[in-house]
Design a protein around this nucleic acid. Structure first.
Lengths: 153, 153
DNA sequence: CTACTTGCAAATGCTTTGCAGGAGA
DNA sequence: TCTCCTGCAAAGCATTTGCAAGTAG
């Protein structure tokens, strides 16, 4: 998706939620779009000096309520944020238990269909109305397997 | 698994970790075994009056390090604990976004195999050494769909 | 006996909130 | 101009930790 189209769609979401698309919110959306993986608040503050921590929390929360951003839980105490799947496409996560980094990964269409069928079966058996799913792989990423660099943020 | 066999296996895990199997730890293990779903600390403290909160946190942590208990993250801020899959069998979770309750669910062997193949493909493509996975369904449980009861703990 | 456990209370650290000034429409 | 947004500082809250007394082995 082009940057223009991305901003248009986020802007629409915000308007629906009666919120403004301010410079800082644009900045956050572009950062998340460029990262291609979920970012933690410390990571965001580290690359964008000058942002107030509370404003980042508040704006990510606003963007989440508007449906443009999603909050994901990794292997540590930090929340991470990524663009909503409607903007990035459906994907899953590789969570490195060494450096705590989360990487996006997509399944082939065939495997994703198989997964959906499995989930339908499970939900139906429990009379559960499923709205979304989360599939994470925990392990060691290529970087950490190659050389011990220690955990980052 | 019988209660005796369960305690034997937990005891072995604790011995390996050079920890003792005290009365409170037995109590926690039996509670988790009887619940059949992950429990939060508030839930545990609610049903077991007299336990010190800090001791519950510490003992669940000890049991987790020993490999007898697993900590899982739901849809709210509370951590939940369940017996390790080695004791309960591999399973996944239905997370109700209304009452926050987590329910265990198993996939059929066929679907579980399909899932494993999909994960292998994804891990290999990213040179990721996968150690475990987490598959959660988010939605509304049967109880909450039937009648609005409001979120519990 | 010696080391691990427990309970209480205080501390920790991510996240949220109150408030006063600034900016979008 | 009116409402929303921002930054700073202070507060919230689940979780962790220090310490002294209790207990397993």
């Amino acid at each position: 998706m082009s940057a223009g189209a991305l901003h248009d769609r986020v802007a629409t979401s915000l308007v629906r939620a009666e919120q403004r698309y301010t410079a800082q919110r644009r900045q956050l959306v572009e950062l998340l779009a460029g990262a291609g993986r979920p970012l933690s608040i410390p990571e965001i503050l580290g690359t964008q000096p000058g942002l107030a921590q509370s404003s980042v929390y508040r704006n990510l929360d606003t963007l989440e309520r508007a449906g443009a951003v999603r909050r994901v839980q990794g292997a540590d105490d930090f929340a991470r944020y990524e663009l909503d799947e409607e903007l990035t496409g459906h994907h899953h996560h590789l969570v490195c238990t060494v450096c705590r980094r989360i990487t996006d990964v997509e399944l082939s269409a065939r495997h994703e269909r198989a997964l959906d069928r499995a989930l339908e079966e499970a939900a139906e058996r429990s009379s559960f109305r499923a709205l979304s799913h989360r599939l994470d792989l925990f392990g060691v990423c290529a970087d950490c397997a190659a050389g011990p660099a220690g955990p980052g943020v």
